[in-house]
Structure formats: structure tokens, C-alpha cells
């Protein structure tokens, strides 16, 4: 089938402002949107620029706005978006070129919540024990692939880039609810700040955008409740 693909283009080194290029490509209905982009890049316009790697939804490279919603280009089929599609970069980060946005601030926020196990006790010879019930408490948030689809779908984040954003909070949740983690003082300071979890307005765009099906909003709600109930 023939698809019409409208893509937002911008190269800050040569273009004054972003513009749209329209391409037509012959693809199968069962092809991924990523295949459409590849077809255009390989056989029509080599200058079209986007990130991609695994092509089956586990690496998180190709998050972008497809028909107004954040999706992974490799996890949406052409037949599900129809024969006209508009593709734009994610919102809220500087565009480096075309669909590629600057991910450095995203990873900085991720690092800010101390996304690693903190346990200063000497480790045993074998594994630390954890019951299946305790393990289940943070299972959902371990699925995160750091694609930024959630953070860049979040209205509070668009208007205020200081907000640590859903992705960082998902990863904070993953350690806050890990029974093996002992000290998260710095983590708590950041997430309980004005630009931390309290800036979440339960908009649910993040949950809708997550390609891994993580209940992002709920993760942030669990963090809020924990902060409240544990306050003493």
C-alpha cells in the first residue's frame, strides 16, 4: 500500500526553523512505521535522521510523536496508523536533527534520582534474600527502557523542564520499593522536592505513552503515598 508520511525536519546548523517534508512510500500494511522511515531514508532521502536500533521495542531508541502521540516507531504497524501519518520529534527536549532530540538532560534527571541499589552492609557470599512478594512490589517499574516517551508526553514537563519527569520517578520507584535498598536520602530529597514527584498532576499521558505498558502514573502515586504514610 502507498502511505503518505509527513515528517518534521530540522537541522539547527543550516535551517532557520523546522519544516515538514512529505514523502510517499510503498510499504506493506504489516510493516512497522520504522520500516517506512527506513524505506524513505534508504531509497529516497538519505538525509532523514532518526535514532533506531533493535527494531522490536526493547531498546527504546526510536520514541517519537506519531500522529500526535508518543510511540516507538518499531512498535506501531502501518495498518494501525493508516495511510497518512505525521511524525514529529518528542516534545520538551532540544531537537538535534529531525527526529533526534538531545537526550542528555533526560539521562541527567535519571542519574539525579540515584537509580541504583544502595546497601552499605557487606554482601553475603550468596544472594541477598527477597521474598517473591517483595520482588513483586517493584516488578512493573523494572520494565523501563528509558525511551523518554513518558517524560516527553507530560504536560508539567513541557512547561517546566526542571521537573524530574515520569521516567526518573519510575526508576526511583524501582529502588524505593526494593526491600534490599537501605538508604535513599538523596533520592528522597530529590523526589520530594517541588520539582519532584509532587509536580505530577495525574495527567496519565505517561501511562498511555509507555511502550512497555508500565503503569507510570500509578508508580508515581505509590511514591507519593509512601512519602505521606512514612512521614513520621
Amino acid at each position: 500500500m502507498q502511505v503518505t508520511c509527513k515528517i518534521r525536519r530540522y537541522n539547527p546548523t543550516v535551517d532557520e526553523k523546522p519544516y515538514f517534508s512529505v514523502y510517499r512510500a510503498e510499504v506493506e500494511p504489516t510493516d512497522r512505521v520504522l520500516d517506512v522511515l527506513n524505506t524513505i531514508k534508504w531509497y529516497e532521502d538519505g538525509t532523514l535522521t532518526y535514532r533506531r536500533s533493535c527494531a522490536h521495542g526493547v531498546c527504546g531508541s526510536d520514541a517519537m510523536r506519531i500522529n500526535g502521540r508518543n510511540r516507538l516507531a518499531c512498535k506501531v504497524l502501518v495498518r494501525d496508523v493508516g495511510n497518512r501519518m505525521t511524525i514529529e520529534p518528542m516534545m520538551g527536549f532540544k531537537v538535534l536533527r529531525d527526529l533526534v532530540v538531545d537526550m542528555e538532560p533526560f539521562f541527567e534527571k535519571y542519574k539525579a534520582v540515584k537509580p541504583y541499589l544502595i546497601n552499605d552492609e557487606p554482601a553475603p557470599v550468596t544472594e541477598r534474600l527477597q521474598s517473591p512478594e517483595d520482588r513483586a512490589k517493584y516488578d512493573d517499574t523494572t520494565k523501563c527502557i528509558l525511551c523518554a516517551a513518558c517524560t516527553t508526553s507530560c504536560p508539567p514537563f513541557w512547561s517546566n523542564p526542571d521537573f524530574v519527569g515520569p521516567a526518573a520517578l519510575v526508576n526511583a520507584h524501582r529502588f524505593i520499593f526494593d526491600s534490599r535498598d537501605q538508604r535513599g536520602a538523596d533520592r528522597a530529597a530529590i523526589i520530594s522536592d517541588r520539582d519532584g514527584v509532587w509536580r505530577c498532576r495525574t495527567v496519565f499521558n505517561c501511562t498511555d505513552a509507555c511502550p512497555r505498558g508500565i503503569q507510570v502514573t500509578n508508580a508515581m502515586e505509590e511514591v507519593k503515598r509512601k512519602l505521606l504514610y512514612d512521614r513520621a
Binding site: A189, K226, D230
Partner: peptide, 22 residues
């Protein structure tokens, strides 16, 4: 030690928490 307590120690206040609760 609870998370919120740790946050207070680090930052001095839990204003946003109470604001949210209020």
C-alpha cells in the same frame, strides 16, 4: 528511617508533601 524523614534531613522541609495533602 522513612523516606520522607530522610528528605527532611536533606532539605529541611516537606512543604510540597503537606501542600499536596492539604
Amino acid at each position: 528511617m522513612s523516606l520522607a524523614r530522610q528528605a527532611v534531613e536533606k532539605r529541611g522541609t516537606n512543604f510540597e508533601l503537606w501542600s499536596w495533602y492539604y
